[in-house]
């Protein structure tokens, strides 16, 4: 076997010309691969949504605090929009991976309050990240709003259980399998679990998940987060919120 007589020695200042040429071609090729890969990998992403977390911007929002089934704020809508209730429902959660503790907000339940916090929104859904000490009771300014629950009947829905906080924009993307661990942490910390249903036309519908008795189900849904599930239960419209009540033991994993 004849060996090439050029020989590379790294501690010498310059490589032999033939070796230098091979290396320059290889390095050039590698850099081209690097650029093409960066472009292709960036373009092929599909999970990033239009969710927004206004991190670092605190706002004051006034409304009526509702604690059931999950803490939310009813905010009067300026002007009347046909087909929509006269108020919006903003979910309320705590910082990091926690929901607002029920005992801390119980004194405000059903009462007008002003909430200081950071807005999180995606599509028509809004959430406020706040703390119990940032909620202040205010004097009633308008007649109390009492959303009447309307039953939409028994339905079978297929979708993904997500933690509403990350899904709406704190993380983007904040759903699907890579996000499973985080969703499990958030939901077990009290962030409301929602079922996201994708329609044929690409639109999304969100259902707050509660037990058959209307109670939070955070601890019972953890094992079915971030994957396709089928849930059959009673759907109720309460103001802007769609609430799906079903016994979590009857949720089924879809393949």
């Amino acid at each position: 076997m004849k060996q090439p007589d050029e020989f590379y020695i790294g501690w010498e200042a310059k490589a032999a010309p033939g070796i230098g040429k091979t290396i320059r071609i290889t390095v050039g090729g590698l850099l081209a691969v690097v650029v093409v890969a960066a472009i292709a990998f960036a373009l092929a992403q599909r999970l990033i949504t239009d969710g927004v977390f206004e991190w670092g911007h605190l706002k004051m929002v006034s409304g009526v605090l509702e604690s059931q089934p999950y803490p939310h704020l009813l905010v009067t809508r300026p002007g009347k929009v046909a087909g929509l209730p006269g108020f919006s429902s903003y979910y309320l959660v705590a910082p990091w991976k926690f929901g607002l503790p029920q005992d801390a907000i119980a004194p405000f339940a059903g009462k007008p309050v002003t909430v200081k916090g950071t807005l999180i929104y995606r599509g028509g859904q809004t959430m406020i990240e706040t703390k119990p000490e940032w909620i202040q009771a205010t004097a009633p300014s308008a007649p109390a709003i009492t959303p009447t629950p309307v039953s939409l009947g028994r339905q079978t829905l297929t979708g993904e259980i997500v933690d509403s906080k990350c899904f709406l924009g704190v993380m983007n993307p904040g759903q699907y399998l890579p996000h499973r661990a985080c969703a499990i942490r958030c939901i077990s910390g009290g962030v409301p679990p929602i079922l996201v249903v994708h329609a044929q036309d690409g639109s999304l519908t969100h259902f707050l998940l509660v037990s058959a008795a209307g109670q939070p189900v955070n601890q019972q849904v953890l094992n079915l987060v971030a994957e396709p599930v089928e849930i059959t239960g009673e759907v109720v419209r309460q103001g802007e919120l769609l609430i799906l009540s079903a016994d979590p033991a009857t949720y089924r994993r879809r393949k």
């Binding site: 390095v27 690097v34 960066a38 472009i39 960036a42 373009l43 990033i48 969710g51 983007n172």
Partner: peptide
């Protein structure tokens, strides 16, 4: 130089393109 340059090129092309295609992406992701 090639090593660090190559990594820097990859990170900046990927990052800049992701930011401009998906303006709502969070920086950490």
């Amino acid at each position: 130089a090639v090593l660090v340059g190559g990594v820097a090129v990859y990170l900046s092309v990927f990052g800049a393109l992701t930011k401009s295609l998906f303006p709502f992406v969070t920086d950490e992701i």
